[in-house]
């Protein structure tokens, strides 16, 4: 199975990269763009075939390494 882990900075944690992207979009003439937040997506190929167990494993990996929960939150999707 494949697990897709999305890691984002928590709300309230300054995201200067997102802000810079927002500025660049504005410079390019795109209007109506509010706050921009940048994160990362990590795809995991898992040998596990049970969806619930795959999700639990990916969540454990996210909590232990893929995200730093002091500053980041994560979301796991199993496909």
């Amino acid at each position: 199975m494949k697990a897709i882990v999305t890691v984002m900075l928590k709300p309230g944690v300054l995201d200067p990269q997102g802000r810079a992207i927002g500025h660049a979009l504005e410079t390019l003439g795109f209007e109506g763009v509010g706050e921009v937040r940048a994160g990362k997506i990590i795809e995991l190929e898992l040998a596990e075939t049970d969806t619930a167990r795959a999700r639990a494993a990916a969540e454990a990996m996210a909590a232990k390494l893929l995200a730093n929960t002091v500053i980041e939150s994560y979301r796991v999707e199993v496909v």
Binding site: P16, V70, I71
Partner: peptide, 17 residues
Amino acid sequence: LAEAGMLPGALLRNAGL
């Protein structure tokens, strides 16, 4: 040390990038 949990907090990208 912060990533290892031996000190509290985290070091983010410099605010000025």
